[in-house]
Amino acid sequence: MQPNSLQLENLKIVTLVSVGKHPQSGRVRRADQDSRAVELGLTLAAQNPDGLMVLHAGDPAEPGLRSYAGMGLAAINVLQLDPAADAVAPLGEQLQQSGADIVLTGVRAESGEGSGMLPYQLAEKLGWPIVSRVADIVSVNEGVAEVLQALPRGQRRALKVRLPFIASIDTAAPAARQSAFGPAQRAAMTVTVVEAETDTVRQSWDEAVARKRPKRLKVIKAKTAAERFKAATAKSQSEGGRIMKKEAPEEQAQAIVDLLIEEGVLR
């Protein structure tokens, strides 16, 4: 959806990106949700290309970062820090300095801890509101953004939130445009070396390739032989649903409508 009647000319959008990992092959790529966040940022900053800043905290030589640049970015800003360092504090400082209005991130990273806590910690640090699982930013008017939030079962909820805010972008957001190789190589990497505290808690963790989770077994807790026999042989019987055979079609339709209203699907 193209944002309409915006005050986007002087809006400052920051998209935080991380290095993605393909779920099957494990190859380094642009992360799915983060690339959607970049896409949304590009859409919002269509009139003002300088208004979008793509920010990464980590290693600037990471090849995965170039694939974000291939979406049409002139530069990617990188806060260079140690891989074992905690990125929250330098990112928070950077955001405060840059005067961002909207900060876009993914919901969960595809590499590292992937707890999805970064946007929340930044919001807590900066005192900004956070909107989780955003599908679209519809408009920005007089410092208030109208945001569509993705709900389960494909539903959407409209929210209004005052700038500045942080939004985590759901997979329901518009898909990212293709990444072109040439522009990706030509894009500039603006590197700032920052000092950050080492994440000591994480050093004590063991990380391994994910094991397959055991499936939950259906345990039959029958006390008597008769119950065990019944559990092994019984067919699931109908719950004694109501059968309307002789009624007129009007009555049948009425009963169906009543049930639909009771279940709350007829809105």
Binding site: K21, P23, G26, R108, A109, E110, S111, G112, E113, G114, S115, S204, W205, D206, E207, A208, V209, A210, R211
Partner: peptide, 19 residues
């Protein structure tokens, strides 16, 4: 707990808050 988009298992001391 699962990390890195469900591709890693992280074994750690049980924290106070769990999802």
């Amino acid at each position: 707990c699962r990390g890195a988009g469900g591709t890693m298992d992280i074994t750690r001391a049980t924290p106070r808050l769990l999802l």
